[in-house]
Design a protein around this nucleic acid. Sequence first.
DNA 1: CTGGATCCTTAAGGATACTG
DNA 2: CAGTATCCTTAAGGATCCAG
Lengths: 113, 113
Amino acid sequence: MSQICCDADEPPCHCLATDLIDVLGRKYALDLVCVVAHHEPVRFGLLEEHLPDASTSTLSTRLDELETEGLLTRERYDEIPPRVEYELTDDGRELGERLRPVLDWIAERESNR
Amino acid sequence: MSQICCDADEPPCHCLATDLIDVLGRKYALDLVCVVAHHEPVRFGLLEEHLPDASTSTLSTRLDELETEGLLTRERYDEIPPRVEYELTDDGRELGERLRPVLDWIAERESNR
DNA sequence: CTGGATCCTTAAGGATACTG
DNA sequence: CAGTATCCTTAAGGATCCAG
């Protein structure tokens, strides 16, 4: 935990107050990282199918935020009808891999009930 | 990502919609897991010092939730003035360890700006 | 000291309609 | 198809005060 929090004799640190943590805490953010990781390149419509509880607008803003945070890219193809594809950036994949043990553990723990 | 999301040809999964993910997404939840992990057994007052932006009530409810989720324990000592100590459960420590690579990466990424 | 109770504010998210 | 714009609801969180 050394990098995560200060030592006992140090003044309190606030290392976790980052924009990224903030964004990842919002609804469907982790889900999006996960779904995109597994289906990239993935279109908006498929993301909606995977997250039917999320409203269009929420999904849209979350994707914006994740793009702003540099975790994924949005590629727009000028076709009719329009097509847009989302992919993870290298950072997004790195995060996804580090997230995996956490989410696996949570899923496994959930199934033991 | 196999455990986290369905295969491309399967119907969409919703494996991430768990109470735990929900709670961990709330404000200061990750911070608490981290601070408790590094300072346990830790008293309420010290948690407040570490998270000065969090209100007393938020901290309190978050601790309740984390206890309900089985991630930490609250030990009350009948003294005057009262003393309460928080510790992680085995599950809490397990989560903390799996969270570490994620948070380390975020912190490191943050510092490269 | 450790909160619980209360009240209040804000912002996150949902529903819907509309457009390039 | 892939959103954006708008409006609205709800719930999360903050501030404050009080109590064991």
